[in-house]
Design a protein around this nucleic acid. Sequence first.
DNA 1: TGAATTTCTTAATCTAAATTAAGGAAAACG
DNA 2: CGTTTTCCTTAATTTAGATTAAGAAATTCA
Lengths: 202, 202
Amino acid sequence: MYAALLAHIARYVTLTPAEAQVVGNYFTCQTVPRKGYLLEAGQPCPASYFVLQGCLRLYFITEKGAEQITQFALENWWLADYSSLLSRQPSEYYIQAVEPTVVAVLDYARQEALLAQVPALERYFRLLLQRVAAANQKRWVHHYGESLEERYQFFSAAFPGFVQRVPQYMLASYLGCTPEFLSKIRAKTSLGEARPGPAAKG
Amino acid sequence: MYAALLAHIARYVTLTPAEAQVVGNYFTCQTVPRKGYLLEAGQPCPASYFVLQGCLRLYFITEKGAEQITQFALENWWLADYSSLLSRQPSEYYIQAVEPTVVAVLDYARQEALLAQVPALERYFRLLLQRVAAANQKRWVHHYGESLEERYQFFSAAFPGFVQRVPQYMLASYLGCTPEFLSKIRAKTSLGEARPGPAAKG
DNA sequence: TGAATTTCTTAATCTAAATTAAGGAAAACG
DNA sequence: CGTTTTCCTTAATTTAGATTAAGAAATTCA
């Protein structure tokens, strides 16, 4: 059931079979349809989510009423609103499934009990969060060091296939521009690339 | 010597006196003059730094040759290039002292040994990094959800005194605008505020 | 399969913030 | 203490990307 999750943990720490068993007991599995919500603004973030299958997006609503996406989560990625999770205050985010999605759920109320029972997970999450911190620092380098066109190019190269998996307006939101502008960038960029002929079909 | 560091750790986990002793043995103390460097681009990040006194900035050089600041660290803040620390690859960042600064240094090579000896620190760093993750998520909300003027207002309010402590062009870089634009914002904003009279002096 | 909904594109106009330039004030430090 | 360096401000010009509008294509799902 949680094979992917246990495999992910095994990348960082070694669990005994008994510990792996305990981990399995603390998680629940949840299926979310396309456009279904795991978190809506106003409620405290109830859990951390590990994506087993599918894709999630985390976004908030700006003053102007636009959806601003700040994170995606594909298979083997964790997603949560850490502020709300830690403070138990209402979240300002939405976590929504971009496609039909299956997640392993670590309920907030049970997290500390699990960590007490399986201390190796303290280390797992420490190592994981260190990588999250590293990724965040890099993200600011891309954000401030590169133009939108460069960021799009980098993103397409770094996550091949992902660009085909989410609507372009969502990618635009994540990259910090309008769909119109991303469309312009792509038109300019793909001039040299193979165009599908009139009869071709994806 | 490391009273502030031990006090910070004590906010998250409880150490035995013996453990506190061990922690003290693993850190070294380093003094950096104003404009001195703890890390320069091209070298692997050698350690994590905990600021005991003073102020650090983390920045990189953009394609256009400008310094782009992405983080500051005041007293009781940790600072490191996590990417470089984890990968042992050359860093793209500089860590420089904004004022004469004293840091507690956790050398990369000794970090894992310390954590093995004092497992409670796995938890300390896990909890710390969870807060870092929360702060990072919030930072994107401010970045994308607010205008530069609002971000400046928020920042001044959230870190009173800090605005007076670093040069304005550094704050501008961190906030993501030019010094000229920040100057304009401040001129507009402070119209209603008390101006120092002609005879007044700081 | 076919209507309804979502998504993508192009193009004209507009705007927030960058760039450039240059003078003046404040700190640093020898 | 004074001089060198660093820092701040104002203003004219320019630009990257937003906004608005509208039609075309692709998906979804009943």
